[in-house]
Amino acid sequence: MCSTCGCGHPEVPNGTVAHHPHPEDARRVAVERSILEENDHHAEALRKRLAARGIEAIGLLGGPGSGKTTLLEATLDRLGAEAVSQAAVEGDCAGDLDARRVAARGARVVQVVTGAVCHLDAHLVAHALEELDLAGVSRLWIENVGNLVCGEMRRALLVSTPEGDDKPEKYPAMIAGADLLAITKIDLLPHVDFDPARAIAAARTVKPGLPVIQLSARTGEGMDAWMKWVREGRA
């Protein structure tokens, strides 16, 4: 025990100025830095690297089952011969089902198994891209359940009708980071309690003027508007 204060710290010879630190000696240090600074740096570096190669990165964000992979498949189908110039990073907790679905459409795919963490971050994406031949690639798709920026230039947030029209209200942070709200699976509207007006109003409360596209990758409804948005970035 420390004989100076009896605090339980191992004995230190007397005569040293500060024999060991005590809580009352604590000093305050100002930091004022963003906790996500490191991710932001990685994301910015990745964005620059992609831009330098003429690659536009589009983030597809949304919870599991929101229709990210199905929308990407339908998009690749509509891109036709252009599909081979598309690359995709698929983040999944386990397995490569999504990656195989997308690769079957002709796109170059790299799968990131995220384990229990589930979401992708910029560092994971940058490493994943090392495995991908980006020669001739014009667009990179990043599928992600999370909302950490991963180097995308534009981000589409997917909310599917079975998820409920309260999603935008419950996840304002996702809305705040999105450039587009895509309401997916609208072919299911007759069977689910989803009021598109409510979802859109909630989203625009967080982000006024946020573009919204209602679509069904299955029936093709709204896909023209979606494809127009996809192509806008390269115009």
Binding site: P21, P23, R33, I35, N39, V117, H119
Partner: peptide, 28 residues
């Protein structure tokens, strides 16, 4: 899940500034 990752970033950032300030440990 996401918070654990952010927590690790927070601790990294804090430890970097602790070292810079010549401190031994962080109490708050």
């Amino acid at each position: 899940m996401h918070e654990a990752k952010i927590c690790l970033s927070l601790i990294d950032l804090a430890e970097t500034h602790l070292t810079r300030a010549g401190g031994e440990r962080i109490t708050a």
